[in-house]
Nucleic acid binder design. Structure first.
Lengths: 222, 222
DNA sequence: TAGATTGTTAATCGATTAACAATC
DNA sequence: TAGATTGTTAATCGATTAACAATC
């Protein structure tokens, strides 16, 4: 079927989307430091990114600066918050109440950046009913219904690798459409569900490639 | 100055280096599942990567497969471990003994993937001397000398953003050349020092861009 | 006005993909 | 042998950078 060329919805490269939060984080810091104006060059120097790239990235969304002057820090910050839809608070569920789950549920860095953990789940009966911060740990058995009930769209997986795919399935069934996965495994999810991965080992292994081994390395032994 | 064309040290794209640990992780899993042979196509399907890309990536380092058959899982895994220099155990220091520091010091996922936390530091006098797993929390005051003493090349920063740059400086002074930074701030480091960043909020914010807001969003209020 | 910096275009650079000869 | 899959080349695709007119 042939279509007339309607107004083409321009798709913005995913890699650009991934840089916007970095810009936002820097602008947040500048605003806290009382800085009122910045430029693509200054921002670029702070972040190790070229000024051209910053201007190009922003140009996908509109015009936010003023020639000869630069960008109003608070204005650009607010625009990025709007674009990224973090000009609100997204409720999130954390699954897994181990060390990592605790760290996530208590993490102060979510506040003011658009997120709040509102539910924590674990499979261990001994943990259910215990408190983390202000939250009561709930059973995995009620995960799907509770996610639906609370209208939660974002889930954080902090369970062992073996359990991660099952947790993902349940989250999605409850209505989750964005998953932050700390389990060291690639998840299989349906179209329309996004997954971001955090595996410190992957980050570390990409650095050891470049590291010069030194003499005192511990040898793998038995 | 003009040079004769000597044997050119081919630089492998950083983005390729970042995919190798993902391949290694998948091969580890396959090996544990008892799989002996795989192909670029199978690996690609599991990871959501094209088979051509996998073959191209591997070709930077040599020939590891057999036409008509594919790759021996354990052999390719071992080769990737060697290339990434995780065919040994790298001692690491964790700085910051909060929730996150605890989670990192206790994390079971480092073992068998090339890493071991051998020292934990914190600035809080109340925490110094306490134990996390088998480790005693040490003072930030001795960080630099202890890093040097232990020959540590990798540091993990799990302190608040305000302290992160100072911690990075001290780690580097002690001899650290690779930093995994959990603090939500871009670090400034000298040439030759690598930094990888883990900020869950950045990952989350790049997903909310694509999320459809629903009706029940909590509104930012006072 | 002179100086500075944006937004945008065009050129460059680099990464991904398609295709296939080689060969197990 | 027939079928399958690698390693590699060339083509395509996409992202980054350089440059500059517009303009504050």
């Amino acid at each position: 079927m042939t279509q007339k060329n309607g107004p083409v919805e321009k798709v913005i490269p995913d890699i650009v989307i991934h840089r916007l939060p970095v810009y936002l984080r820097a602008l947040d810091l500048m605003a806290r430091q009382g800085k009122r104006i910045t430029s693509s060059q200054e921002l670029g120097e702070r972040l190790g990114i070229s000024s051209a790239q910053i201007r190009k990235d922003l140009s996908h969304f509109g015009e936010f600066g003023k020639q000869g002057t630069g960008y109003d820090v608070e204005y650009l910050r607010d625009q990025l918050r709007r674009i990224l839809k973090v000009d609100r608070v997204w409720p999130m569920a954390v699954v897994g109440a181990g060390d990592l789950g605790h760290a996530l549920a208590n993490y102060k860095g979510f506040a003011n950046r658009g997120f709040q953990v509102v539910a924590v789940f674990d499979a261990d009966p001994a943990k259910i009913g215990q408190r983390i911060g202000g939250l009561v740990i709930e059973s995995m058995d009620v995960l799907t219904e509770r996610i639906a009930e609370l209208g939660i769209r974002i889930g954080i997986i902090a369970v062992p690798a073996e359990a991660a795919q099952d947790v993902a399935n349940r989250l999605i069934e409850g209505g989750v459409r964005a998953i932050l996965n700390y389990a060291p495994i690639t998840l299989s999810v349906p179209e329309g569900v996004r997954v971001e991965y955090i595996d410190p080992v992957l980050a570390l292994q990409s650095m050891t490639y470049y590291l010069e081994p030194n003499e005192v390395e511990t040898v793998v032994g038995s």
